[in-house]
Design a protein around this nucleic acid. Structure first.
Lengths: 346, 346
DNA sequence: CTGAAAGCGCTTACAG
DNA sequence: CTGAAAGCGCTTACAG
């Protein structure tokens, strides 16, 4: 005869759970299976037992162990979310959007930072897989398509900012090029013809797309592209700062500068300020991303907005849909330029 | 006789792992126990077996299932990290610091947002516990001490920004009051006597501490505290904006405004700008937190710096120490005012 | 040094 | 409707 509670060696960790399905079951005088069924609403159970069990659960404030449930179910109710940096103001809003939607669905987000480099991104995805996430959301990133496809064999992936097709992959393209074209056109329509462009770091696709949109707008207006008017930044404030300085030092004339993102524009602001140049009187500036802080910068920055927050929510919805066996369907957030006070008519 | 691989019902989920310890073991001709030992370096194993097993592991790119390991070990190698918002520029740096240190130690951070309210903070901590985190890091927050103590019975907790003693609780106090005193003193030493203060939202302790530091500095300099000079903000830009407007509308004279945090100061910048007031010529402004963006704001903002990044790293180190059974020891990051261009001598 | 077995805390066919 | 049992994929005493 087997004892109902075989003596168990208390193995190490004091964090071993004190209350388990078993103790709830004993207390309510039922089997663990029944408790499980009640908790999960996974079968009809007589009201009588239900009441007893619920009382025991309430009494102990019991919640089933996630690891055990995960193991039994093969699901972790966790989504791996890769951004480039947990402290990047750009991704921040997106993460917020993801977190919100996932929470509503009972999922948790496991956030990790790819640090703008392929090796780290790869490490993160691996870690996600190892930790048994049910799905992955990648905010852009420079990981090779082939690698993404490989990981997608293990778990569904939604990627933003690139268009990548494949089984268990869903992508939410971001219209960087169009946004950039719109921004440059705005400047052109205001009479600017000598428009400098400050890039991001080289390898990232978004930056290239934005550069390309800028060139398209120029071409549309029959303005010749001047390579001396493009300066290299690094997506961050300091890059924008150095880049405007370089531009100014070059002696090349320009009446406006279009920055690959708002952080770069903020850096450019300081560079211009240091040279005693007024925005927009001496030079107009436009950014990209429309960070929350850009409405508060002086003067408030004209920027192209594509609601990363919405993008985050949509990514979450997409991964949830895939997990539920539905086809994700989204209409990409509208992209438009928010005109504020950093640009003026020439 | 029991078959070595009893036929198993393939239960649902296609994400069921294909390769397990079992298959590696079979392939290398050893038992799962041995594979486990090799992976964990948990016992001497003959080189011969080791080689065979490692080959099989490499071939399949095998990594043990985290949920299973977690269940067996009673540890998840995950730390729950509560901040007020995943997209707050203030906490961002701290999260970054945590992530970095945790990663080095092989732990992952599970980030969740408390949204500046007790109910959400409580929900997050619960979720952490349910998900079996090995420890929790809380960035300030307004959850009642008693609740923190209760959760600490389940898992060690390190809290920043408050001093809370208790078993399995370690706190990293943040010297808000002293920082605020220093900032206000800086203004006073520059000749200001009518110094306005913009607060955070009411309930948060940090804000009260900062207000108190401001009052101390005033008292030290024998300047009478004028309640009409304190305006209520909300920790965010819009609150700062509205607050300066209120101050200006009140007709009360002031030559400087000390803001409870940098975001508030950024909002105040815009408010002043809209009224045609120059910083620092017409009014000096000082913030608190020294956000990265504050060096790029125009003019660069004088602010008190307490390195949240460092605080994050220290929190991570502390929780790691506790888990390793060591006593955490940290020297709190130095607090000082970074003088930039938003303040001038009267 | 190595394997068979029990156990971690759940879930869910299977059999009443 | 309900329980006993097997299984999820690991780890680790226990016994050679």
């Amino acid at each position: 005869m087997r004892a109902k509670h075989p003596a168990r060696k208390a193995r190490g960790s004091r964090s071993r759970r004190a209350i388990t399905l078993r103790v709830i079951a004993d207390e309510a005088g039922v089997s663990p299976s029944t408790v499980s069924r009640i908790i999960n609403g996974t079968a009809k159970v007589s009201d009588q037992l239900k009441v007893a069990v619920q009382a025991a659960i309430a009494k102990h404030d019991f919640r089933p162990d996630a690891a055990a449930r995960g193991l039994a179910l093969g699901r972790s109710l966790t989504i791996g979310v890769l951004s480039q940096a947990i402290d990047s103001p750009f991704y921040a809003e997106g993460l917020r959007g993801v977190e919100k939607r996932l929470l509503q669905a009972g999922y948790a987000a496991l956030f990790m930072s790819g640090n703008w480099n392929e090796a780290d991104e790869d490490r993160c995805l691996r870690e996600f897989i190892d930790r048994g996430v049910d799905g992955i959301i990648m905010f852009s990133g420079c990981l090779a398509d082939s690698a993404v496809r490989r990981y997608a064999r293990r778990v569904p992936i939604v990627v933003t900012g690139r268009s990548l097709r494949g089984p268990r992959i869903f992508s939410l393209p971001v219209n960087d090029r169009e946004g950039a074209r719109l921004a440059a056109r705005h400047l052109i329509e205001a009479g600017h013809r000598r428009i400098a462009f400050i890039t991001g770091a080289e390898n990232h696709p978004d930056g290239l797309e934005r550069l390309s949109g800028y060139r398209t707008a120029l071409a549309d207006a029959a303005i010749e592209f001047d390579p001396h008017l493009v300066a290299e930044g690094n997506w961050h404030e300091d890059g924008g700062f150095r880049a405007v300085n370089g531009l100014l030092d070059s002696g090349r004339r320009f009446t406006a500068v279009f920055c690959v993102n708002d952080q770069t524009a903020h850096g450019a602001y300081l560079g211009l300020f240091r040279r005693g140049l007024k925005i927009p009187d001496d030079v107009s500036v436009v950014g990209f991303d429309d960070l929350p802080s850009s409405s508060y910068v002086l003067p408030p920055l004209t920027s192209v907005r594509q609601s990363v927050h919405e993008l985050g929510e949509q990514s979450a919805e997409a991964i949830l849909a895939i997990l539920a066996g539905r086809r994700p369907r989204v209409d990409p957030p509208q992209i438009k330029v928010i005109v504020r006070e950093s640009t003026r008519r020439l």
